[in-house]
Nucleic acid binder design. Sequence first.
DNA 1: TTGAAAGCGCTACCAA
DNA 2: TTGGTAGCGCTTTCAA
Lengths: 350, 350
Amino acid sequence: MEDRRNDGQRPPATLASIAARVGVSANTVSRALRAPDTVRPELRRKIATAMEDLNYVPNRLAGGLAGTRSDLVGVVVTSLYYSEFATIVDRLQSTLLASNLHVMLANTRYDADEELKLVRSMLSWRPAAIAIIGVDHHPKVNDLLRHSGVPIVEMWDLDGDVIDSAAGLDHGEIGAAQARHLIERGYRNLAFLGSMREIDARAAKRAAGMRRLAERQGLPPVVMKTRAEPGHPDLGEALCLELLADNPAIDGIVCNSDTVAYGVLRGLRKLAKNVPEDVGVIGFGDAEASACLTPTLSSVRPDRDNIGRLSAEIILERLRDKPSRIAPIDWDIVARDSSRRGMPTIGNDM
Amino acid sequence: MEDRRNDGQRPPATLASIAARVGVSANTVSRALRAPDTVRPELRRKIATAMEDLNYVPNRLAGGLAGTRSDLVGVVVTSLYYSEFATIVDRLQSTLLASNLHVMLANTRYDADEELKLVRSMLSWRPAAIAIIGVDHHPKVNDLLRHSGVPIVEMWDLDGDVIDSAAGLDHGEIGAAQARHLIERGYRNLAFLGSMREIDARAAKRAAGMRRLAERQGLPPVVMKTRAEPGHPDLGEALCLELLADNPAIDGIVCNSDTVAYGVLRGLRKLAKNVPEDVGVIGFGDAEASACLTPTLSSVRPDRDNIGRLSAEIILERLRDKPSRIAPIDWDIVARDSSRRGMPTIGNDM
DNA sequence: TTGAAAGCGCTACCAA
DNA sequence: TTGGTAGCGCTTTCAA
């Protein structure tokens, strides 16, 4: 197959090559870019034309090295799937872009070693700030971030040792609220089910909040049914079948994610258990499909837009030397049919 | 609130500061990092300790500027949602990382101007290669990429003017296959429904493939029902209600994404249309939830793993000066209940 | 309004 | 096995 790439071409244009072509100094070209007002309009136009002609793209390695500040914000997430953090990243990016900050994204895939590598890699670009999912990191990661000298915003969680600033949820409280939701509707024998990776402290916090509440209410201990695999409906179904086989009395299931809950609903159907009459189910995250299942799935909806927007705003504030802060983010329980025991099904949620 | 950030600290450690501390030249420290074998083990250990102590993080701006090659691969996607491209990015990243190439991600959000800005921004980091979704770009983007002098891999699509290499699907063929799937099951009055942004040439190609097939088969013209909004179940439901109100004869709906199809199924339920008896529905993308809906949703499953892996491999090949190539990616139709007209429902897909 | 010169932190090359 | 030197392409003074 022929080589379509325009190879063997001249090296990329530099400021100097533009300058030479126009007949000015590199300095002037640089100013035409960063402070156009200080360059004669006519000259400015000539320079712009030369840049177009030569397909000039500024070299940020050089710019960043020479300059004082970077326009790069590093964003470290644990996963890209299931809209879990996609909305956050999206909002973060669009808000930062409005202030001309560019996002560089890294994905740890829930791997602590990977997190360390990626944070190190991220910092090596000398970013203006870092946004990262969670507050529970590899100790070395905490160290690196703390000594980085740039603003750090931890997102999604805020229960723990915050490095600089945070915008997140109180997962312990959410776990308790999930349990309360089921208990109020008459479910008594609760289980927590789903994917739970070691690095995912948020899941553990929700489970703990749930257990505390059940205990306070004098209910049987919460049965834990988790596995360290990525969340997927198939995992949910498998865990659900195991759970009910070992604990037939279970009548309320809190899932670690909506995706897993989808599989749980499927599993319960296979076991001929009615939802919500026999078993109540609630998920976490309120994925798009949750209002389209049969029965529709109750869930917890974090205000993701706000996490992204607020994290960006905190970064901008910190860059202007405003004080750090810890911002709790709103969430609510979306009660749908999967936990509507004893109540008439009112049809699909709009 | 107090300031948790360790501010006012000494500037980040440099190679020189490490060198000074150990009492060697910066050069040696650099080699200790890039070619450890050329440094005495004892010295190497001392250097490593100093780096630990000073929390040294190499400055890639300087390294990239001085060195000959970059270990950065720019990845440009159109969206981060619905696992559409998340799996691809994930696979791409993990494959590249194995060769010590780091991914920098940008998200155009289906905005052509944004694409131009982001590609320019990407190139300004002097990446070793670029992977980008689609083959239909802003003309200026084509220009920039073509002149960038680095390998370019276009992903997800391959029907059009490929810049360098591609790993993707033939969307026209997929559209035809979706239509054929419905036609074979007895559906006759077809519609194409969903989100369709101007920049999303893939959707247009699938719709065109579908229309061509319907015409060849002498069926009524395919009704188009699209809107330039992001795909979401609510959009699907709204479009579905409109569609059936204006075209009551429609009995086969090809959706532009599974997410939109979820809303279509909900809309059809509200209209008291039975799926698959009255209306057949097929989506695109095979999202996780599709096997969990009632009825389960038929869809097209692209081999996303392969797109990501292959794109990474092509990049590695190109960096070793192997020839460019255009790699068609497998896909198949996952036939589930939503298009199983006249056939007994066999229960939930596993 | 423009230019000259220094230097950001690193790598590459050559010499020791 | 180590060190010296010369840049990489840009920004930042300062001077013209």
